[in-house]
Computed example of a mutant assay.
Amino acid sequence: MAKKMKPKPDNLLAQNKKAWHDYNILETYEAGIALTGTEIKSVRAGKTNLRDGFIRITNNEAWLVNVHISPYKEGNQFNVDPLRSRKLLLHKKEIAKLLAALTQQGKTAVPLRMYLKHGYAKVLIGVAEGKKLYDKREALKKKDQKREMARALKERY
């Protein structure tokens, strides 16, 4: 009898935890990313920082801006600028929806996580709305309350 395989996690390479703290994520899109040979090696090694990144749409093309991918150690002359803009691979309809969402006041698009899917690097993009300071405090209070309830239940049983 064959052994049942557990579903594999989505091979998370980088995550933008600050985005979940600073923004309310309204909707998400999955996009491919165009990388050079040494960049994909560096991404697979986990040398990516999504923290200050954002998505810009110019000439009906989506670009990932200000995301730092460290140069590959063995890449020498083939390495590129770590902060260069990288093209996102989306369908025309997805770009149109994203553009319509971004033209609204107070909306922005940020990268939430980067992962491998079937051997290709993917980026999860979130259309987000900025949180106010009191919203951030409220979210931290709720998180602490959940943690306290979990601790109390663990001690009880």
Score class of each variant (00 low, 15 high):
85 S>H: 04
85 S>L: 07
86 R>I: 06
87 K>L: 05
87 K>Q: 09
88 L>R: 01
88 L>F: 10
88 L>D: 02
89 L>D: 10
90 L>A: 09
90 L>Y: 01
90 L>E: 07
91 H>G: 01
91 H>W: 03
91 H>I: 06
91 H>F: 05
92 K>H: 10
92 K>A: 14
92 K>L: 02
92 K>Q: 13
92 K>R: 13
93 K>V: 11
93 K>Q: 15
93 K>G: 12
94 E>F: 11
96 A>I: 08
96 A>C: 01
97 K>T: 11
97 K>N: 15
97 K>A: 13
97 K>L: 15
97 K>Q: 14
97 K>V: 10
98 L>F: 02
98 L>P: 05
99 L>S: 14
99 L>C: 04
99 L>Y: 11
99 L>D: 12
100 A>V: 06
100 A>N: 14
100 A>I: 04
101 A>L: 09
101 A>K: 05
101 A>E: 11
101 A>I: 12
102 L>T: 09
102 L>K: 05
102 L>Y: 07
103 T>H: 09
103 T>W: 01
104 Q>G: 01
105 Q>T: 12
105 Q>L: 12
106 G>V: 03
107 K>H: 13
107 K>Y: 09
108 T>D: 00
108 T>S: 11
109 A>P: 06
109 A>C: 08
109 A>S: 01
110 V>D: 04
110 V>W: 02
110 V>K: 05
110 V>T: 04
111 P>W: 00
112 L>P: 07
112 L>N: 03
112 L>Y: 11
113 R>P: 00
114 M>I: 08
114 M>L: 10
115 Y>K: 07
115 Y>S: 08
115 Y>W: 09
116 L>K: 09
116 L>Y: 14
117 K>Y: 15
117 K>W: 14
117 K>Q: 15
117 K>A: 13
117 K>I: 08
117 K>E: 14
118 H>R: 15
118 H>Q: 15
118 H>E: 15
119 G>C: 00
119 G>T: 05
119 G>Q: 04
120 Y>I: 13
120 Y>G: 04
121 A>E: 13
121 A>M: 08
121 A>P: 10
121 A>W: 09
122 K>T: 01
122 K>M: 10
122 K>D: 03
122 K>E: 00
123 V>M: 07
124 L>P: 06
124 L>Q: 13
124 L>E: 15
125 I>D: 04
125 I>F: 03
125 I>A: 01
125 I>G: 05
125 I>Y: 02
126 G>M: 09
126 G>K: 08
126 G>D: 02
127 V>H: 02
128 A>Q: 08
129 E>F: 03
129 E>L: 04
129 E>G: 09
129 E>A: 03
130 G>Q: 00
130 G>A: 05
132 K>M: 11
132 K>R: 12
134 Y>F: 10
135 D>E: 09
135 D>Q: 05
135 D>P: 02
136 K>Y: 10
137 R>C: 04
138 E>Q: 14
138 E>N: 11
138 E>D: 14
139 A>F: 13
140 L>N: 06
141 K>M: 03
142 K>Q: 13
143 K>Q: 14
143 K>D: 11
144 D>V: 10
145 Q>C: 00
145 Q>Y: 12
145 Q>H: 12
145 Q>S: 14
146 K>M: 03
146 K>I: 01
147 R>W: 12
